[in-house]
């Protein structure tokens, strides 16, 4: 925790920037304004869905994933923003003997643009690419810090600004995901044995609905998200999860941001209410934001 705080401080003092603006929202940095954020996230579960079977695992106990993300958003124009995210992730199991993993996970880079805006309704498009920053082990699940795939994410966003600073936001995305190369040279996928080190990670959809309040740079939002792979297999009885699994989950949460001037903070709490081949995680994140004119 100590290094998290010192890293956070270092980022705030030396990089100078910030304002929360995410690949899924309708908020833009003005031209030549940059927003830097340092976000600490803590996600953990004790129960998970083995296929559809909801269970605990006494040889894992509580699986915790912590991450520290440095994020930069930049206003190329008022209507086109670029966003980059660099996460460092570490995992830990409270029981059993599986060794925790840590390292730089996947760099993601986004371009977001406002395509249309009329009578409070605006439509946006975002495209993101993410790729592993380090050669982490993707198939030591659930301890792995990531899935190791390159992803290309295309997102459509529609927002509606209502009276009294209230807004609605709906978004939908398709995540194209590449094969990954694993250390092993054979694996099961759908009951068939594949004798190769190439593993196809299934593509996925996600969609979200948000309702919130936004005044200047202060924001409070309730949201529900759903994530689902387009195909894949299920975790077999008492087996470990694998990259080919058809994961799905529904998450609800609350997000808030307070940014009186250049310096701001944000926080998010979310909880997985239903899923398949995933853990029922509770996720909490806290961030420090800073806006700077370049």
């Amino acid at each position: 925790m100590k290094y998290v705080i010192s890293l956070a401080l270092a980022m705030v003092f030396f990089i100078h920037s910030s304002k929360a603006q995410m690949p899924h929202d309708g908020i833009y940095m003005n031209k030549k304004l940059a927003c830097g954020a340092l976000i600490y996230s803590h996600s953990s579960w004790t129960n998970y869905w083995e296929n559809r079977l909801f269970r605990e695992n006494l040889n894992i106990g509580r699986l915790t994933t912590e991450s520290m993300m440095a994020m930069v958003a930049y206003g190329i124009t008022k209507k086109i923003n670029a966003i980059a995210v660099f996460p460092y992730v570490q995992t830990n199991a409270s029981q059993g003997n599986l060794m925790g993993q840590k390292g730089f996970q996947d760099l993601s880079f986004w371009l977001k643009a406002k395509a249309f805006s009329k009578q409070g309704i605006s439509i946006h498009g975002a495209i993101g690419y993410s790729t592993p920053l380090s050669n982490y082990v993707p198939d030591f699940m659930p301890m792995s810090i990531g899935m190791g795939a390159n992803s290309l994410i295309t997102r459509g966003i529609i927002t509606y600004d209502m009276a009294k600073h209230l807004y609605l936001n709906g978004s939908i995305a398709y995540q194209m995901r590449s094969q990954v190369k694993v250390d092993r040279d054979a694996y099961l996928h759908g009951g068939k044995l594949y004798q190769t080190n190439e593993v196809p990670v299934p593509d996925a959809f996600d969609a979200a609905f948000r309702f919130g309040y936004l005044k200047k740079d202060n924001q409070l939002e309730l949201f529900a998200e759903t994530f689902s792979c387009t195909k894949g297999d299920d975790i077999r009885r008492n087996d470990m999860p694998f990259l080919t699994n058809d994961m799905s989950m529904t998450t609800v949460g609350i997000y808030g941001k307070y940014q009186p001037k250049h310096l701001g903070v944000n926080a998010k709490v979310s909880y997985v209410v239903d899923g398949q081949n995933v853990g029922q995680s509770l996720n909490v994140s806290l961030g420090i934001l800073y806006i700077i004119k370049l």
Partner: peptide, 22 residues
């Protein structure tokens, strides 16, 4: 410029999910 970045990104992800086996 952005279009070419997008095309570059797509090219980084193999469209085929067929794995090469012996």
């Amino acid at each position: 410029k952005y279009l070419s970045i997008c095309i570059f990104c797509i090219s980084l992800i193999s469209c085929s999910k067929e794995v090469d086996e012996t």
